[in-house]
């Protein structure tokens, strides 16, 4: 006890609290990351072959661009739907809010694989959705909802929606009700209040949610493999293949590094573009 006391007195509480997570990250994140970067250049001598192969084979750039496209589409839909859901939850009565939150959280308890299979039962040609649409007389031929980009994006949005709902919800709940009263007493209608008060004040949540969804969706590989079609190939599928099927780890590392660098570049561009335009409350 006294040893801890001395430590806290000598270095301050913040440092002492930060130390365990920092050590954890150093041992289990930074060290492996360095290994991944080193492994892509040295095998064992310095070589740029893996990066050269990526640049010269047309496959890899195309898959990177498909990955970005699917990820951005997912982000867009997650932000739109997530905002609507968060707004509904924020404006609901406390009891209803609890119930709605539960609805968002419960699917998290199911494994990703099982959720993929459930979606396959819903989206396939003879699936629930096509049956319902046909029974309602809206379609005569089943729609192709799966084994294409539609299927992949629908399932990914379903998996990642909570990542936008929660940050947006917390910024919505942080807005003081006084601001709404002020807005309406100054003569603004609900739409104007939303555009001038609610939206700008909740933007930090939107930014945080969008970034989370973007980064997580870059790493998806089960969903494109199960509900994707000919062209829904994501970079993680290729990384998985090289890691587990042919054991070409240096090349898999190179692919992972390109993905990581691309993400970082996008992140900094994004951070620069929104810098100073957000309310000072909480930039992610």
């Amino acid at each position: 006890m006294s040893a801890i006391d001395t430590l806290v007195r000598r270095h301050g509480l913040t440092t002492c609290l930060l130390l365990p997570p920092l050590v954890f990250l150093a041992a289990f994140f930074v060290v492996p990351l360095i290994e991944v970067v080193r492994g892509s250049f040295f095998a064992p001598d310095l070589t740029f072959d893996h990066y050269a192969r990526m640049a010269s084979e047309p496959l890899y750039l195309r898959v990177v661009s498909i990955t970005l496209k699917i990820a951005l589409l997912t982000v867009l839909l997650c932000v739109l739907l997530g905002y609507a859901a968060a707004y509904l939850i924020a404006t609901a009565s406390p009891r209803a809010r609890q119930l709605l939150m539960l609805c968002v959280i419960v699917p998290f308890f199911l494994s990703t694989l099982i959720r993929n299979y459930i979606w396959m039962a819903i989206l396939q040609r003879s699936g629930l959705l096509n049956h319902a649409l046909r029974d309602l007389g809206l379609i005569t031929e089943p729609l192709a909802l799966m084994y294409n980009q539609t299927g992949v994006v629908v399932v990914m949005v379903n998996m990642l929606l909570p990542f936008t709902i929660f940050p947006i919800l917390s910024s919505l709940l942080a807005i003081s009700p006084d601001l709404y009263h002020a807005s309406s007493s100054l003569g603004a209608g609900p739409i104007r209040t939303f555009c001038r008060v609610t939206l700008p004040m909740s933007l930090p949540g939107v930014v945080a949610g969008a970034l989370l969804v973007f980064i997580v969706s870059l790493g998806f590989f089960i969903t494109p493999a199960l509900v994707g079609g000919q062209k829904e190939m994501m970079i993680s599928n290729l990384i998985d293949f090289h890691i587990r099927q042919v054991l070409n780890w240096p090349f898999a590392f190179a692919l992972a590094n390109v993905l990581l660098c691309g993400t970082l570049v996008l992140y900094f561009l994004y951070a620069r573009s929104v810098e100073g335009r957000l309310p000072r409350t909480a930039f992610p």
Partner: peptide, 14 residues
């Protein structure tokens, strides 16, 4: 041959 042919396979799919 698996690695090279899978690369070509993926390109063909796209």
């Amino acid at each position: 041959n698996l690695e090279k042919l899978t690369e070509r396979w993926n390109l063909w799919r796209l």
